[in-house]
């Protein structure tokens, strides 16, 4: 596909969205009540991600031997499972894939700023991410799934972190990119804290003109606020069901 076909002169993208529209967003929490303390499932367009959280606990199962528990906060360990069938073309990734390792470091940093650290001194929290299908927005899906799973596990957070990717086509910013757009355009992923304008997460792996960055980020923040609303709605639905059961 040529780069020019990604945004038609009428203002439509390959999947028929306008520049400022999100993909269909679906999320669920407490999907695996018996397998983990907190679990969530996030679907952004055709990307599907599962997240299982175990903890807070005294010993982490994935904790490398000799790792000391921290008296000032939890030790987060993040494990990303990217099975070969997740992408369109079957491709096996090694366990220590460098891009995934970098993403897990970024996510860890982001959530260490989001979790109320003082409540979880000397504990370990294991986060297990599984990609079922990937069509763009890898980091954004991960971030949203972790937020929901942490909420489900009852771990205290300062606020939601919702993330979305924003790309640039010529002069036009495009919200929530799919895989086709990500391949050809440069983009930045941002994670926003709650309803504020505070960014807890930014990742840009391509070159972007500096004068356009502000527009991209402000569009991204709007998208994130919308995602936060949708996530909050789902959490309240799940909370209501929990109350009914008691």
């Amino acid at each position: 596909m040529s780069r020019l076909e990604l945004y038609s002169p009428e203002g439509l993208r390959v999947d028929g969205r306008r520049w400022n529209e999100l993909r269909r967003f679906e999320c669920q929490i407490n999907t695996h009540p018996n397998a983990a303390d907190g679990s969530s499932y996030v679907q952004q367009g055709n990307s599907k991600v599962l997240c299982l959280v175990k903890g807070p606990m005294e010993h982490g199962a994935n904790l490398a031997a000799g790792t000391k528990l921290d008296p000032n906060g939890p030790v987060l360990s993040l494990n990303i499972n990217y099975p070969p069938f997740a992408s369109n073309e079957r491709k096996k990734r090694p366990k220590n894939d460098r891009r995934l390792q970098e993403i897990s470091i970024i996510l860890k940093r982001c959530f260490m700023k989001t979790i109320v650290l003082k409540n979880y001194s000397r504990t370990a929290i294991d986060i297990n991410l599984t990609v079922l299908a990937m069509d763009g927005g890898l980091l954004a899906c991960f971030c949203n799934a972790i937020t929901l799973a942490l909420i489900d596990a009852g771990i205290s957070l300062y606020d939601y972190v919702s993330a979305v990717s924003v790309g640039l086509y010529d002069q036009t910013p495009l919200l929530d990119m799919n895989a086709l757009e990500e391949n050809d355009l440069s983009f930045v992923t941002i994670g926003v804290v709650g309803d504020s304008d505070k960014l807890n997460l930014t990742l840009c792996e391509d070159k972007l003109p500096l004068d356009k960055l502000e527009r991209l980020i402000s569009l991204g923040i709007e998208g994130c606020h919308r995602l936060k609303e949708l996530m909050d709605l789902q959490v309240r639905v799940a909370g209501g069901q929990l109350q009914e059961r008691q």
Partner: peptide, 9 residues
């Protein structure tokens, strides 16, 4: 055919 099996937990 590629059969990929993932045991989640």
């Amino acid at each position: 055919l590629y059969v990929d099996i993932l045991v989640l937990s």
